[in-house]
């Protein structure tokens, strides 16, 4: 899976550089999120601007990250949700759980 990680001091931004976040590749994102948590980064922004498709496995990895961050008194914010991704969050009601922003900048400013 392609992704880029950017450390902004108090917040680490993970840019997911894949068109799909699904059962085939979402495990790699989970590993990266766990690595970040273990290294002490507890406030994350995950940018999904390039992700055009997400499945339940991809959602599950984001939920896992959300729970991990909450346990450590940190946070996970999401940005750049495309149409299919947004509709999957709404279908599963997860849009009520996550803080969702249109851009990374607006998530950083929040």
């Amino acid at each position: 899976m392609k992704f880029k990680t950017e450390d902004n001091g108090n917040v680490v931004v993970v840019f997911v550089k894949e068109e799909r976040l699904d059962a085939h590749n979402s495990g790699e994102l989970k590993t990266e999120l766990n690595r970040l948590f273990e290294s002490g980064s507890i406030n994350l922004i995950i940018d999904l601007k390039d992700v055009l498709f997400i499945d339940s496995s991809g959602l599950g990895v984001l939920v896992s990250g959300y729970k991990n961050a909450s346990t450590k008194m940190g946070s996970i914010k999401l940005s750049g949700l495309q149409a299919q991704v947004k509709s999957m969050f709404e279908l599963t009601r997860l849009h009520r759980v996550f803080d969702i922003f249109s851009t990374v900048d607006s998530a950083l400013e929040s």
Partner: peptide, 21 residues
């Protein structure tokens, strides 16, 4: 359906999504 207390389960959404669509 993965609502209420189950909303933060990491698994179990697949068939719910299929049934919804």
């Amino acid at each position: 359906p993965c609502f209420n207390q189950d909303i933060l389960d990491e698994k179990g959404r697949g068939l719910f999504i299929i049934r919804s669509l």
